[in-house]
Structure formats: C-alpha cells, structure tokens
Design a protein around this nucleic acid. Structure first.
Length: 140
DNA sequence: TTGTTTTGTCTAT
DNA sequence: ATAGACAAAACAA
C-alpha cells in the first residue's frame, strides 16, 4: 500500500508477479515485494522513469496489442488515441475501450494517451491522469 | 461553436 | 446473431 495526495495505491501480486494496480482504492492485498513498492514510490516522487518488474497481464488478444503499444510511449511524452489506433490499424474508439480495461495503470502508462484536443478519460478519475502527467512533466 | 455520424471491440442477451 | 456501451474523431452547419 502506497499513499499519495489523491489517495492510496494498492498492488496485487500473485506468485511474484504483479497482476493488478488499483489507484485510489484500498484493496486487500497479500505480500508485495519491497522492490516493487519502492519502484512505484520512486516513480511517484519523480525519481524513476521506468517500472521494471514482472507482471502477469490478462486480457484479450486485441487488448494486449494496445497495451503493448502504449508501453512504448516514452516517459514524459503523450500520444493520442488516434495515433495508437493508426499504428494498430484500428479505431480510436476501440483503443479507448481497451485502455479503459487496463489492469496495470502506471506500468501500462495509459495516462500518456490523450484525446486529440482534450484530455480524454481515465478510469480512476481524471485527477489521477492530471497528477501523473504533472509528475512526468517535472512539475510540483 | 454545437450536433450528428462513423467507428472497432467487448459484453450480454 | 444482435444490440448497446464506450477513455474518439471527423464532419456539417
């Protein structure tokens, strides 16, 4: 369990692999390896740019393709739903739909995906999206 | 600026 | 099979 200005973050781990990350909700979790928590804390403090731990990702074939693509977005940069869609040969709407199901926010940096002229959405609430983007922008 | 149409995928019926 | 939901975008007016 990690604390942020916006609320707690819980990490669910199954045999050494991160299965789910919950923003703003306090979920019952088992033991979480110290190294994983530290990475996330450092990331939130703006001291770390990549999360690198083992994760087990469950989803449909299409969802995994979207999540994989989103993982390639560099720290501090953003892409639009349309840009991701074009790369995968699908529609922006479908990309948003897949991101809405993202089980691993932060690890799969879906906050780096925005709408063309707006911020787009975020399952945990837009405050989280803004918060995360602010961290990566180096802002306070 | 607003509303309307088009759009791919997923879930439930 | 089909209908409805959706974290979007393009277009008409």
């Amino acid at each position: 369990m990690i604390f942020t200005p916006l609320g707690p973050i819980s990490v669910l781990v199954e045999d050494g692999k991160v299965v789910r990350i919950e923003l703003g909700r306090n979920v019952r979790t088992g033991d979480v390896p110290q190294g994983i928590l530290r990475q996330i804390e450092e990331y939130l403090a703006g001291l770390r740019k990549e999360l690198d731990f083992e994760a087990q990702i469950v989803g449909t074939c299409f969802q995994k393709r979207v999540w994989e693509e989103v993982r390639k977005i560099p720290y501090g940069e953003v892409r639009t739903y349309g840009e991701i869609a074009k790369k995968l040969g699908t529609s922006p709407r479908a990309v948003g739909r897949a991101l809405a199901e993202n089980p691993l926010p932060l690890y799969i940096p879906c906050h780096r995906v925005v709408a063309k002229n707006k911020l787009g959405g975020f399952s945990a609430g837009l405050e989280w999206k803004e918060y995360l983007l602010r961290i990566e922008r180096g802002g306070a």
